[in-house]
């Protein structure tokens, strides 16, 4: 069943306005709400170093999640903008996803009209041979030392991800961080699920 998030039009407009005002840099923030109903935004400064391609929410803003919870609410979503790329999680977004219970909202300014989409980013527990996967797929270095391969829905599963051992859930990213070729890579497999956004 497709999950949903009620994101009132006024909040969508605030995210778009913040995204446009921040362009060419990415913007970000968190969303307070209750039971899949967004109620208010808490905009953050983007404290990443290269803000045209990265975002980093201020830790003090993220700490508000505990204030929300003490009042019976929760951090129902985290939002950021993609000034020049689609409203879809990047491999970097997948690698850094840290809050599986929150919806990831992405506002893209790539097209004429801004677009906001919502996603869940969930870790898939999987056992596989990364070396074999590297040989069987075409992966790319998305950030220095960070490599990714994206498995689109319905595309063939490489033998390295044998169906008998690998959860049949897609689309997903296999991302691994290996800043030093001699070091053991850290690997994550992250499922991307779309969340339906409703305005009321």
């Amino acid at each position: 069943m497709t999950r949903e998030l009620v994101l009132p039009y006024t909040l969508q407009r605030q995210i778009i306005d913040q995204s446009l005002a921040g362009k060419p840099e990415e913007i970000c923030g968190i969303v307070r709400g209750r039971e899949r109903q967004a109620a208010a935004l808490v905009p953050s400064r983007n404290v990443a170093e290269e803000r045209t391609i990265n975002y980093l929410v201020e830790p003090s803003v993220l700490m508000q999640q505990f204030v929300f919870e003490d009042a019976g609410d929760s951090m129902v979503a985290i939002y950021h903008s993609h000034p020049e790329s689609p409203a879809y999680p990047s491999a970097t977004d997948a690698w850094t996803a840290a809050y599986p219970e929150s919806v990831y909202l992405i506002c893209s300014l790539e097209a004429l009209q801004p677009v906001i989409r919502g996603f869940e980013l969930l870790d898939i527990e999987a056992d596989f041979d990364l070396t074999a996967l590297k040989q069987q797929t075409s992966f790319h270095e998305t950030r220095p030392g960070l490599f990714a391969w994206y498995r689109a829905t319905g595309t063939p599963l490489p033998d390295a991800l044998d169906r008998t051992r690998f959860p049949a859930r897609d689309p997903f990213y296999v991302v691994w961080f290996q800043p030093d070729p001699a070091a053991e890579p850290e690997v994550r497999v992250v499922y991307i699920g779309e969340i339906r956004l409703k305005s009321h």
Binding site: E26, C28, I30, A48, E50, T52, I53, N54, Y55, L56, V57, P59, L62, M63, Q65, F66, I78, H80, H82, P83, E84, S85, P86, Y88, P89, S90, A91, T92, D93, W95, T96, A97, A98, Y99, T142, R143
Partner: peptide
């Protein structure tokens, strides 16, 4: 004491 995982990411390159 609050433990707060960072929230980061970025555009596709």
């Amino acid at each position: 004491i609050s433990i707060v995982p960072a929230m980061a990411g970025g555009a596709a390159t």
